[in-house]
Amino acid sequence: MIFLTFLLACAAAAATGIIFQPGAWYDALRKPGFTPPRWAFPVAWTLLYILMAWAGARLAVLPGSGMVLALWGAQIALNTLWTPVFFGAHRMGLGMAVIALLWLVVAVMMVMAFRLDLWTGLMLLPYLAWLSVASALNFSIWRMNPGAGQ
């Protein structure tokens, strides 16, 4: 039941990707050569959301995990916010600020999770890796398309 609660939070974040799809605006932007193919995004995010929910459920039963769980809540809120900012409002600069803060929160959360439970920390590693790629992609698109979004 705890896992399903965390999975529900992840599903809410994922729903923003359905509501605010990349669309014609994104397709028209110049993108760097390391841009993953479009099919990779839903596959990666599905796996990452399952790992995030599993990590959250593991953290929820560990003594002393209050601060890490607070960070889990902050990261899912920031994760949910990025898509409407970038794809909905076309605010690439603000999207960069959101994803940079998200990366920092996830990095701190992961370090703290490792201190509590090795497996939970390991579950968060792919998320931080994907966020690193996504941050570089956000930054590159923002720089390559001046005037296409603030």
Rank of each mutant, 00 (worst) to 15 (best):
M1I: 15
F3Y: 03
L4R: 11
L4K: 14
T5G: 15
T5E: 15
L7T: 01
L8G: 13
L8W: 06
C10P: 00
A13S: 13
A13H: 11
A15K: 09
T16W: 00
G17N: 11
I18Y: 11
I18R: 09
I19W: 01
F20M: 05
Q21K: 15
Q21E: 15
P22W: 09
P22A: 04
P22G: 02
G23W: 09
G23E: 01
Y26G: 14
L29I: 07
L29M: 10
F34W: 13
T35I: 08
P36F: 08
P36D: 00
W39I: 08
A40F: 13
F41Q: 00
F41Y: 10
W45Y: 13
T46S: 06
L47Q: 02
L48C: 05
M52Q: 11
A53P: 03
A53M: 12
A55E: 05
A55S: 07
A57M: 10
A60M: 03
L62V: 07
P63L: 06
P63W: 05
M67R: 15
V68Q: 11
V68K: 15
L69R: 08
L69H: 12
L69I: 13
A70P: 12
L71Y: 09
L71I: 13
W72L: 04
L78H: 15
N79M: 07
N79G: 03
N79E: 04
T80F: 09
T80I: 07
L81F: 03
L81D: 11
P84V: 05
F86W: 07
F87W: 11
H90K: 04
R91G: 04
R91Q: 05
R91Y: 04
M92C: 07
G93Q: 08
L94W: 12
G95F: 11
M96H: 10
M96D: 05
V98W: 00
I99G: 13
I99F: 01
L101N: 11
V106F: 06
V106N: 08
A107R: 02
V108H: 01
V108Y: 03
M109Y: 08
M109W: 01
M109I: 06
M110H: 12
V111F: 13
M112R: 05
A113M: 08
F114S: 03
L118T: 07
L118Q: 13
T120W: 08
G121L: 01
G121E: 00
M123L: 14
L124H: 12
Y127N: 00
L128M: 10
L128T: 06
L128P: 05
A129K: 02
W130E: 13
L131S: 06
L131C: 11
L131Q: 05
V133C: 02
V133A: 08
S135T: 14
S135D: 04
S135F: 06
L137I: 12
N138T: 01
N138V: 07
N138H: 05
S140P: 08
W142A: 00
R143H: 14
N145T: 09
N145Y: 00
N145R: 13
P146V: 03
A148S: 00
A148D: 03
G149E: 07
G149N: 11
Q150H: 00
Q150E: 07
